[in-house]
Design a protein around this nucleic acid. Structure first.
Lengths: 244, 244
DNA sequence: GCCGGTTCCAAACAAAGGTTAAGGATGCGG
DNA sequence: CCGCATCCTTAACCTTTGTTTGGAACCGGC
């Protein structure tokens, strides 16, 4: 995926409601970006650090997580190409969580300095980027509900359906029956707030019940109806619809 | 609490890192604010609505929450005077959760229009308000960790200690051994992702163990050392320190 | 002062999820 | 093709949390 098409998916997301004019778009396109390749399962920025750049995902998958003093890790979000998972570092100097790749990924680094220049010059761009971080927060809120209120099987399928919806927003097209979900069962446990063996139990159960097959880094939907019933997924919180 | 002193606590929070100059402060002070009184346990804005104002808490306590299709409610955050719990509505037109008072409260409504004029005219103010919403998101992240990884007693005391720290930031002074925590046991359950009877169990346990006494809308710390050990509370995620 | 609601408290039992442990598949590097 | 590491899988058992239920305390309104 080349730089232009990635910026395109970023711009598509930013443009949903905020009305960017051609000059805004040109300004974003001319941001200096340092493209680098990252191995899978590697830290990008870690808790406590003070990064000087933000990181645009060009290709691959990333996660954010926090580790408690007791050593338990909680995955906070999953990120896909076209997203800037550490945009918050622009105003929150010190990281309060980790950002890492899940699989080998191509990343584009944009300096805080150039972003700050851009935002101070262009009110529309601030609005669009600010809005993007607010959607990030909306996803966290839903994640709290997921972990706090739903039984474990519903938790898993809810996260999977959210990811599928977000992938579609970036890639276009229909919702595929099979899509990437590059988490190990241990990571699924960390995302849902359960142990890896319980993650295994519910994955097996979902497979036996003919609802979804989660394996080898993929989700394969076996029965859309049963799945929708279990997940109770309503994408309003993603704020993807410009008209809404 | 009069308008000036509330704006003062708002400004103190905003001013932590973002350097507001006198003109910025004057502009914020001259925002038109409609002050209204609200009963306790009343909705301010509800899921699905499209508010045209943001709500500054002048006096009282508010909560944000989401209710699942299954009818389970999850409390997402607790808010105190000086905060604007629905600032996100400035850019996310449609509410994806509820905002309600916990106790009788005095609220100040500021129109989106006047906020947008202000932010478009003053880059420093955008930065400060944007940053404020990013701290909001940081608190959500910690809330996810709390609900996902900590055992129920630690969850409760962690939230209590966070609230105490945030109250201090607004009111100044030392951390008191007794402070307001105006949640019923049912609401504590909704905040922690447990049932009210389990909330009762752990509250009783914490009392018997001589750690904290949570009752009648208050938290009374019985043993700071044991409490600190249990809560593992590290306030870095609140981003209150300008120097950090 | 009484009444109806809410909140708090508590016990017995059920279910979900955690713990420990160990064997099997899979894939990669030599 | 072998060996090692990661991952997935499963089972038995234990702990935490949910469910159901009922009663006591409290509070505001009449």
């Amino acid at each position: 995926m080349d730089r232009d098409s990635v910026l395109a998916s970023l711009l598509r997301r930013l443009d949903t409601v905020s009305k960017l004019d051609p000059a805004d778009i040109a300004a974003i396109r001319s941001l200096p970006i340092a493209v680098r390749h990252w191995e899978g399962a590697r830290a990008i920025v870690s808790d406590g650090e003070r990064p000087s750049d933000c990181c645009l995902i060009i290709e691959g998958f990333c996660i954010r997580s926090k580790t408690t003093e007791a050593g338990e890790r909680q995955i906070l979000s999953i990120h896909i190409p076209g997203e800037i998972p550490d945009l918050q570092s622009l105003h929150l100097q010190r990281m309060d969580h980790d950002l890492a790749t899940l699989v080998p990924s191509t990343l584009g680094f944009i300096s805080h300095a150039s972003l700050r220049t851009l935002t101070h010059a262009r009110p529309n761009v601030v609005d669009a980027l600010w809005r993007d971080t607010l959607i990030d927060a909306a996803i966290f809120r839903e994640w709290i509900v997921n972990v706090g209120q739903r039984p474990a099987p519903a938790r898993l399928v809810h996260i999977a359906l959210e990811l599928r919806r977000r992938l579609r927003a970036v890639r276009g097209g229909m919702e595929p029956a099979t899509f990437e979900f590059p988490l190990t069962q241990e990571q699924i446990g960390e995302a849902l707030g359960i142990t890896p063996v319980h993650a295994n139990r519910i994955i097996r159960q979902l497979r036996e019940d003919g609802i979804v097959d989660v394996s080898r880094g993929q989700v394969r939907v076996l029965d859309e109806t049963k799945l929708a019933e279990l997940a109770q997924f309503d994408d309003r919180y993603l704020h993807q619809d410009p008209a809404a």
